[in-house]
Design a protein around this nucleic acid. Structure first.
Lengths: 143, 143
DNA sequence: TTATTGTGACTACAATTGTAAACTAATAAA
DNA sequence: TTTATTAGTTTACAATTGTAGTCACAATAA
């Protein structure tokens, strides 16, 4: 899974990011407690993940003195977008439509979300091609 | 990334699956050639991945005699759906809408895809909640 | 001002993944 | 029917990931 800087964020790291994004900023104590409650992780585990996230520049340490504050460097929205694009890049272009359909069906969406999607689709419909080409194989084969 | 059986399929393995899905079935020679052309992999690499996919029961060996044929055991569509759900499970429920919006914007969709999505959304709009709750943290905090 | 404790840095280690060589068994060519 | 070739199986090995212990240093309490 990639983040907004296109660095790979692992599953475990992603869980930490999720919490940091939600809280906006957090101390290691808060993170350790949250991860312990959410996942049952030991303090060490959270510390390690936090460090790796700092190395990957997904999180930054703030406040010069000791109980540091950690804040996300990469935004949640952008990271989600990158991760989603990353996933869709792994599948045949022809399948994108039905996969999106599945996601929409299985997720809870607010009225505003739905209205937004409808607007985007209406716009997109204007220039949509009749068919999407398969892009899985070299040469001219199709799914 | 998970497949339809909820087994983890790694990135490299996924690339092999993509080709097998597209071709419907393939011999190892075809796969080796395709992966070499697509990714520059050595024959050994493709063989290894193919084996791991067999072990994970994502692919099965067919035809009793030697140039075996390999076929997908898990379907492309279901695997896509599982992988997508897996991704969305990793993000805050509140962000699903805007992430889907981003995906729709960045992907090519056919007229039929769009019409299908519109129908699904229209249906979903009937019972959509005003707001989606954040599900990232324990307790009653929200994003 | 020393002892204690909370926080951050460094080290560890098994499992998984990406990548591929080496070996073995089956088929095709000579 | 021996040999060459192709296909399939085992083994290898470094990098990454999940999970966590230990060490060092700063803040606080005694």
């Amino acid at each position: 899974m990639k983040d907004a800087k296109n660095v790979t964020i692992t599953d475990s790291e992603w869980m930490v990011m999720k919490v940091i994004w939600t809280m906006g900023h957090a101390t290691s104590r808060e993170l350790i407690d949250a991860m312990n409650e959410l996942e049952g992780w030991s303090a060490s585990t959270t510390k390690t993940l936090l460090h790796r996230l700092i190395q990957k520049q997904a999180v930054a340490q703030h406040g010069g003195s000791r109980p540091f504050t950690y804040k996300p460097v990469v935004g949640e929205k952008e990271s989600m977008a990158v991760a989603a694009d990353d996933l869709f890049d792994h599948m045949c272009a022809m399948r994108a439509g039905s996969t999106i359909a599945g996601v929409i069906q299985s997720r809870e969406l607010s009225r505003a979300d739905i209205a937004n999607l409808q607007a985007i689709l209406a716009e997109k419909a204007k220039t949509a091609p009749e068919e999407v080409q398969c892009n899985c194989l070299p040469g001219d084969q199709t799914c």
